[in-house]
Design a protein around this nucleic acid. Structure first.
Lengths: 301, 301
DNA sequence: ATCGACCGATACCGAGGGCGCATGGATTTG
DNA sequence: CAAATCCATGCGCCCTCGGTATCGGTCGAT
């Protein structure tokens, strides 16, 4: 025979009232079943919990100890349902968010602030992954939200998080590296660029690869090197292996030995970053955030 | 409808096995009632704890949270019976021990060491009380053990803890204060003492009062002052109001301005200190100690 | 000392709940 | 497409638990 919650509640009531009748009334019960509960409890434990002194009862030392345990158990049981319901509502829990190295510089801080504001009480776990890996992880339910570049495959919901144009990165000793500041004087036309380009890898960064290829023309693109990580590309630019088209937010990295120029309006092209998630994720915290975003998709809301 | 321990155990088993059949087998149950337990639990909480994916089950986020609470509750419930039984056996608990100011100097440390050795795991609370108050507190169940001087009233068990003889305390400038050290050269006879005596109060220290009165003779005793606390008596001796008969262990207090002399074998008298307790105390820790003392009453055993 | 009030323990009975057995429905596998 | 696997459901039985009535003991008042 093992313990029952009814026994614990009954014992706790009797221990507090020191009176079977009043305790029974508090439990919406009559006295006899309560007596039997306590008797059964004492039989299970092999211990007397009360001294029956004819007139009222008194806790034994063992009863005092058991009462302590009782209170702890009942207190835990008191909060467990609410905690569970909050978890089911997404009011508590964890959001696993992945981001790209590029995205981290421009938008991660603002995005996390928005998440905290919309889902307070939810904690965040961060992972850095390239876009294709993020989509795979989303499908495998290993992450909840990815900060990815297009295209967004079917079956995912997404939100435009950031849009910026591309700028031309050139070595600091390049003829186009003129003007004050990191971004030099005035826009340049791509037609004026005679150097090789550092291209994006069509596997790791298909989106930027395709856009740049379209902007420059396949014949002149990627003749020098292919890289998928922006820091790598900047290192190649700095080494004089060519120039590159880089999202503007990367300028803030302040990499030594690299200067930038804006592009003509005719050549300018913007690239976007999207928060992406699976609409049928089992994570209630994600569901809650998604619902909030569906109602007010503004990032600063 | 509220939670049941069976539901918690059932949920915990299913959450660990992720399989109703195996979980049911582990619980010595068939699968249908287990399914109903989980259903009832989910209905009580208003929350889905498992995703039934046709092939096996998976915990929801709410299920993860509830499982944490479950484990804590079940772990508490696991240890509660043992802890309670240990308390009932007196292997844990508290002994409330009272002592007199006099007794504290000579024997309290050794006595507490003996208690710790015989009842490890039991904590001790200390109170200083004069002997009559100790006996009252014992009767009122406010303390468990008193370190008192005789007589021990009927209805109490006791153990001789300490025995020592009385020495004569005289002012430092007294004719009898000769010899090196706190206790001067050789024994003296009470017949050689012509001074007044500081006497013990017959209310606060009846035992010492009676013994001293018998030693000296009522006519010469207590003509100067009455005191019940030994430190007070030593202060009076130092002030030159008389001499006093003091338990030898008090010499170790090293009170300034007081010297001591041993008494003739004919006059010597020993006083005792006893640990005293009520044999029908409800404190199992005391019962355990008492049983241990009944078997081996030696203090150093 | 005796009666009455109070309190916990016990006996008995009836209703509800939980278990097992048998089976259904859904999904996956060969 | 058939078999296997797994969870859900319907049903009948038994056990358990709660309520009523009563007993036994202690304490307090007269």
């Amino acid at each position: 025979m093992d313990l029952t919650l009814q026994q614990l509640r009954g014992f706790s009531a009797v221990a507090e009232e020191l009176h079977f009748g009043r305790a029974a009334a508090r439990l919406n019960l009559t006295q006899p079943p309560l007596t039997r509960q306590i008797q059964g409890l004492e039989r299970s434990l092999g211990v007397s919990l009360f001294d029956r002194t004819g007139r009222g009862v008194r806790l034994t030392a063992a009863g005092e100890v058991f009462l302590e345990h009782c209170r702890r158990v009942l207190a835990l049981l008191e909060v467990a349902p609410d905690a569970t319901r909050r978890a089911a509502d997404g009011q508590t829990g964890t959001l696993r968010i992945a981001f790209t190295a590029i995205g981290a510089y421009a938008v991660l801080a603002d995005f996390l602030a928005m998440v905290r504001k919309r889902t307070p009480g939810v904690s965040v776990e961060l992972t850095e992954l390239v876009s294709p890996d993020q989509l795979q992880a989303l499908a495998d339910l290993e992450i909840d939200i990815g900060l990815v570049r297009p295209p967004i495959p079917d079956g995912f919901e997404s939100l435009l998080v950031h849009s910026e144009d591309l700028v031309l990165a050139v070595p600091a000793d390049h003829p186009l590296a003129v003007g004050s500041g990191l971004v030099g004087a005035g826009p340049v036309s791509l037609a004026d660029v005679t150097d090789d380009y550092i291209g994006y890898s069509p596997e790791g960064s298909r989106y930027l690869h395709d856009i740049c290829a379209a902007m420059i023309g396949m014949n002149r693109y990627a003749v020098s090197q292919l890289a998928s990580q922006v820091p790598t590309m900047l290192a190649l630019v700095r080494a004089g292996l060519g120039c590159a088209l880089i999202p503007r937010s990367i300028v803030a990295m302040g990499v030594q030995g690299v200067r930038y120029r804006e592009l003509d309006a005719a050549d300018a092209h913007s690239v976007t970053l999207h928060a992406c998630w699976s609409p049928d994720s089992p994570n209630p915290a994600l569901q809650r955030l998604a619902e909030s975003l569906r109602q007010t998709p503004q990032l600063d809301a």
